[in-house]
Design a protein around this nucleic acid. Structure first.
Lengths: 235, 235
DNA sequence: AGGGCTTTGTGAAAACGTGCACGAAGTGCC
DNA sequence: GGCACTTCGTGCACGTTTTCACAAAGCCCT
């Protein structure tokens, strides 16, 4: 049978779920669980059991029919596939409120992403220590990235500075960017960019709240509200 | 034509993009742009123009053929649909590193989600002030939620405390939860839950890095690596 | 060894999301 | 007013993701 190298491409939707399985499986392992069925894992993850099986099948046929999956082995395989067999130190651009929080938040280090450096443009921040790392000037980015062989950069700047932060990261040789600034950034082909916008998440929740409120209204009385300005109403 | 109330359901994928458009449009508006075409907006958002048009068409037919969309009006319509015509104060559970950062991070307030309260279980934290709000005991959650008529709760506790935080929020009458803890939480039907796991985002990036590294290897030499332990190799 | 039970792995169908392509509807110039 | 030009709104085809359903494969008991 074919070796590991020529593994088929894993669908993006599956890649996004593997870390969740990994987290759950690790917890189970710590609790002494040695075996788990797709249905148990599905319950924990809040998804459908068939989906779990299909997701895991992209890693290879590592289950045993009638029994389930060996937790420890599965943890290893997922880590392997996600590239988590070693740490990936990250460099944070922006030592403001958010950057400091990210650096100080232990969650990253704990899960294999220690802070390999943090930079800012503000001279007042240079030299201060956050989360065990000394803040350095953004001009040193190139040197930091290359000397530590970093691949992942985190943008924690205000929106206005995000694009230049991205450009600096790319110029320094970074190939994956996690962007916390609330705007879209451009990066050359071959650089992966993911965006996390905390306010967007709240806005999505707000939409659902709004919807529930409307539904309640509609139930109580079927007369629609006046409905705000129509086109051109302002000006 | 039909009124506003009986609007067809908006696909979740579109709901997730509307906040992005909103952000871009607001910026454009501040820059004095009064009109915008689907193509311009698509460029800014980094998506396809047809997708923008389809997304916006769920709000109604608010564009003008040959001209584009009126920025101000569109901003109003998106806000309206997302329920952003008024603020949604949020209550944060957990005043640790992450909770403090979220409360201190101005980005929430700025986008319509002021911190309406922050609670913790640790007596040492009660009474301290973070981001303008005084930390109160989690037992007061009920009172805080009801007296301020809050709908949205944010979980910023360690993983182990996340489920009880969720239970407390639900008991207090919260109907939307944003969960930053790295585990899945259960909530009754009718309560919206969204999860943001910062480490998961990094792990997804790690997968792509890993993949690129493998591709480089494969190009250089076609001999696969030894490949780590096989099933049962440990124990 | 054989039968019953459990649970995987995967084809096929359904649902969903995306992008193209084009008719419809508007503007502005002459 | 008519014509050329622009840009929206959407039907349709395509790709991706989810779900169903079931044969295959293993375990355990007798």
């Amino acid at each position: 049978m074919a070796g590991q190298r020529a593994r088929r491409r894993i669908p993006e939707a599956t890649v996004a779920r593997l870390p969740v399985y990994l987290q759950l499986l690790s917890t189970q392992y710590d609790d002494g669980v040695t075996n788990i069925s797709s249905e148990e894992l599905a319950d924990l993850a809040g998804v459908n059991a068939a989906k779990v099986r299909k997701d895991l099948s992209y890693l290879g046929s590592y289950g045993t029919r009638g029994v389930g999956y060996e937790v420890e082995f599965l943890v290893y395989q997922i880590k392997r596939e996600l590239g988590l067999t070693h740490d990936w130190p990250v460099v944070i651009v922006g030592a403001g409120n958010l950057g400091q929080a990210l650096a100080g938040y232990g969650g990253f280090t704990e899960r294999g992403f220690p802070v390999g450096g943090i930079v800012d443009v503000d001279p007042a921040k240079i030299g201060t220590v956050v989360g065990g790392a000394r803040v350095r000037h953004v001009d040193e980015l190139d040197q930091i990235v290359r000397s530590n062989d970093l691949s992942i950069g985190v943008i924690a700047t205000p929106a206005a500075a995000a694009q230049s932060a991205a450009d600096a990261l790319v110029a320094a040789g970074i190939t994956s960017i996690l962007n916390f600034a609330p705007n879209v950034i451009n990066a050359p082909h071959g650089v992966s960019v993911r965006k996390v916008d905390l306010a967007v998440e709240l806005q999505i929740l707000s939409y659902h709240e709004q919807r529930r409120a409307n539904a309640r209204q509609a139930t109580l009385q079927s007369v629609p509200g006046a409905g705000g300005p129509r086109r051109g109403a302002s000006a």
